[in-house]
Design a protein around this nucleic acid. Structure first.
Lengths: 316, 316
DNA sequence: CAATGCTGGTGCATTTTTGCACCGATAAGG
DNA sequence: CCTTATCGGTGCAAAAATGCACCAGCATTG
């Protein structure tokens, strides 16, 4: 019907001068970079090369004459304009996801059991909203949560997925490090008012709440802010540490994701926190190709990514 | 943070087996083809080659394992699945248009006057909703509508844009044909009940309502369904023809976009309609590069495209 | 301080995509 | 009937996008 003459050709001319049509796929790439925070991460997620990412972001920015990212040595960080775009593109993604699910028939109807094991502290204070959300998203999946502190039940096939605090996951399991959480020193305000702290040298009436070490002065005390304060009690469980500190037993060195969310505790000034341990999400080699296991692990990894500030004690 | 090992690599593997990630830009192409009805039209609109369109649609269909178009000799027609997708992608387009306008700073803030001339019949019965919509979309544009039936006021620079019934627009104007409207024969039901029609041969008490021809039997009567019915009256204006037919004066040969929308008239059986004249949208050569003129002409051309069924008498 | 692991950037070879010039087929106009 | 215009499809060459193998810079770790 419409000839590509007259108006259209003029329109093309004006297109040459100024702005080009937006490539919708560039928005997808932008989204991935914004979410992942790095070109490499986005490339991995999209299954393409990272140089493709950087070049296309660059081309998009120069075509639209707008700066969306600050290139920091640590990766890509959104500018103000980028933040604005992120929000808008997010809803585009929702629409397109809906299209993929309903029209293109890619609805992932996950079914079956997922037996997952993790520490109760992580389950309760970090992942619970995400676990619930996952179960709501995939109602046919039966999620079994078995809290535990050791890797054994994964090895023994008592669980499909383990989220564990470890630095060196065993060879026969596959997965990825999802965070390195930080720890700080906490006590109740009343305890701090009542007892006296001290510097490097001896003195001070306060004391540490012990973990399960049998040595009188564990390494974490020696390297701490108050190496000469005595250690009292043995509480091998993070949540009992929190409870003991709340009850005014002493100073607890606990993960920031526990201490910072506990209103009855406060950090010992100056309140610095330090990286403590890694958290890995792991599964068996033969389960990693299962869609529901993959989806679950991705969802949990994403949850950790979103709570990174809390886990690294930057939310205080 | 996240390594491209373990989970991700497995995810890539499963991606190879089955479905690929959707290229968002393919949706844009799909939309253009669905709207234009042909690969060439879509290609023109997007400023790319038509073979690119056909190949990408083909690739998209085979990747998603879904047939979206029927390839007819007249172009691409949506399948049921395609119709469904069209609706969904439409809202994606709205989102992205919003992004372009607000974030990417492509908000077309059209300003200034547009003086447009067209026949009153077209203005009232075809374009009025679109004219209003255009003015609401671009509140800074002052649209002046001057109804008229000749091209003179465009040549004399009394108008910027003309929408005219013509077969051969003059060389010094640029634009495009927007439709070829159809005509049919109409009369009021009471008239048809009272007067007698006839076939090719003489006879019959009904008569035609005349246009402005001075000859006793104009060509359009001779070629018509009832070449021997007499002609009475001279009504040179389409809307007065409608009114005369409604008042029971006789049979009017008028555009379908007038007759079909007039409840007080009905087509003379068997109600066939025939192509009658072309409608062009035209402007001066030196105005066609103006953004607001371009935008206006594109909007009106699109309006005609959407009302094609009405204009070709296929809505009856 | 050295080692590691991450980040983005770049030149180059390869692959992929695109545009172009055709073709045959189909409607519609005269 | 013939002419014209438009449709989609295809082989081929040019152009563009991509992947790859590197590099340097920076942060963290030990």
């Amino acid at each position: 019907m419409q000839k590509c003459t007259s108006i259209a050709s003029y329109a093309e001319e004006s297109r040459r001068e100024g702005k080009q049509l937006v490539n919708w796929d560039d928005l997808k790439i932008f989204l991935a970079v914004a979410r992942e925070g790095s070109a490499r991460g986005a490339a991995c997620k999209l299954g393409i090369h990272h140089s493709t990412i950087t070049r296309r972001v660059e081309a998009f920015e120069s075509a639209q004459k707008i700066r969306l990212f600050d290139r920091l040595p640590t990766g890509y960080t959104l500018t103000a304009a980028g933040e604005e775009l992120l929000q808008a593109v997010g809803s585009v993604e929702d629409e397109i996801n809906g299209i993929e699910r309903h029209i293109l028939g890619k609805d992932i109807q996950l079914k079956g059991d997922i037996r997952v094991t993790m520490s109760d502290a992580i389950a309760i204070h970090i992942l619970m909203p995400d676990l619930v959300n996952f179960m709501e998203t995939y109602p046919e999946v039966n999620l079994e949560l078995c809290t535990s502190y050791d890797l054994l039940n994964l090895t023994k096939r008592e669980a499909d997925v383990a989220i564990r605090i470890t630095e060196n996951p065993p060879e026969h399991l596959v997965g990825r490090k999802v965070c390195r959480y930080h720890c700080a020193n906490y006590a109740s305000p009343s305890y701090l008012a009542q007892y006296e702290l001290a510097g490097d040298m001896a003195g001070g009436s306060a004391h540490w709440i012990g973990w399960d070490s049998t040595v009188p002065i564990p390494e974490w005390v020696r390297k701490s802010q108050f190496p000469h304060l005595p250690v009292r009690g043995r509480f091998n469980h993070p949540l009992t540490q929190v409870a003991a500190a709340r009850a005014g037993l002493g100073i607890a060195r606990i993960p920031c994701f526990l201490g910072d969310r506990e209103p009855a505790l406060q950090r010992i000034p100056p309140g610095t926190c330090e990286p403590c341990h890694d958290i890995w999400i792991l599964t068996h080699k033969d389960l990693v190709s299962t869609v529901r296991i993959q989806t679950f692990m991705d969802a949990m990894a994403e949850a950790f990514r979103q709570k990174r500030d809390l886990l690294e004690g930057k939310e205080a």
